[in-house]
Design a protein around this nucleic acid. Structure first.
Lengths: 224, 224
DNA sequence: ACCTGAACACCGTTCAAGT
DNA sequence: ACCTGAACACCGTTCAAGT
């Protein structure tokens, strides 16, 4: 061992092709979860992977292409639950699971606001929803409109859920509302606590979901 | 006139305090509408205003503070419509107007996803909705939950509406769906046209809005 | 007082060079 | 073939200097 004089700065000769597209994408996802969309840069990701910045461009032509792959990786990550029960139950389960998955990767939701992702993996949610709806008896047209409603609600809920813990978010809301003039904002002043809880909490999701599914049940019954 | 020799590079001596916070904010809004959130930089906005970059920091401590002021300016810009009719009609009108206003400034929606705006102007929408709901007879708790549903739906719809013309968006959807394997995506393949129309079009907004309001009507009737 | 250029610490990406 | 430093054209913002 002591015969090695003047070792080279890099101890291992760094075998070629250490990385793959999948490894880079999943590292990027982990980085996004920890530091947010604004925190991710090609330079920092490369640094984390112990590799020169430009090495990443051997796997992805651009940052945009990398981010698309990250969305795909996150969707593929999710195990397809079997979905049992009648159609309202199956919808409730699918939407709940999807919302939960989105909640685990807030940066990805932000990403999808900026540019709609139309890659196959991301469209699984659409196919599953449409299968349940047409199976329940909705026409293609009604099912498509109902899908957009679910998509908007589930993704909107994730996108506009406040960051941080529920406690902190509720506290921030309450502080902002207490600063309002009661004569100009009478109802918000009176219902401040309920509003803060509804805006910050996660359990309000089911209120809207049940209302939407109930409306669809009624519509289906009326059509018969 | 010809007596002027060697005119200074800036023809007018540039009177001090030419700008105001309001002028900078409304210029920024116009710039956002034209070039999107990513297109706006302090340097470019200053250039457009014919002023040094650092001059802007005399009006706003940071880009964040400027962007908050832009959201406020856009909300204040909207005239408060009188809102007549029964409570479902008033809600329909308020949500429709809000959605239209958001559609005029897509960059602002993107901005509000990234950081919730809790300034008084932005909370007018909350107060108005809560006034209608409590006036209709909903408890503070139910009204708060219903507000979150409306907020999620209206802002989610704006956030996840595809950019560009409806034609282009529908065409992009159709292209993506035609690339799917029919055996893996049977329903999307069969209902591709309806889906493309529902995802790209703006008239699907009323489908969800009516369904939500109908559900609330039923809930109110059931409670009596 | 009001305005601003230079400078600093960052970006994504091109290009030419390393092994 | 695979990797990468230097360089380019950008950022937001600090700081010290202009008028």
């Amino acid at each position: 061992v002591s015969t090695q004089v003047k070792p080279k700065p890099s101890p291992a000769p760094a075998p070629r092709n250490r990385l793959s597209r999948e490894e880079v994408a999943s590292s990027a996802l982990a980085y996004l979860d920890r530091h947010g969309l604004d925190g991710l840069s090609m330079r920092r990701l490369a640094g984390e992977l112990g590799v020169g910045t430009m090495t990443l461009y051997g796997y992805f032509r651009s940052k945009d292409e990398l981010l698309d792959a990250v969305v795909d990786a996150a969707v593929a990550d999710r195990p397809a639950a079997p979905l049992e029960g009648d159609w309202p139950d199956r919808l409730r389960r699918l939407m709940g699971d999807t919302r939960e998955a989105l909640g685990r990767h807030p940066a990805l939701v932000q990403l999808r606001v900026q540019r709609p992702v139309l890659r196959p993996e991301a469209l699984r949610f659409c196919e599953l929803t449409m299968e349940i709806l047409t199976g329940a008896g909705f026409s293609h047209d009604d099912a498509a409109q109902a899908f957009r409603l679910f998509f908007t609600y589930v993704f909107g809920y994730a996108a506009f859920s406040p960051a941080g813990s529920e406690e902190e978010a509720a506290q921030r809301s309450r502080t902002a509302m207490r600063a309002l003039a009661p004569e100009e904002y009478p109802v918000m002043t009176a219902a401040g606590d309920q509003l803060a809880r509804a805006m910050a909490g996660g359990d309000t999701f089911d209120f809207g979901l049940d209302l939407i599914i109930g409306g669809l049940e009624q519509r289906l019954a009326a059509a018969r």
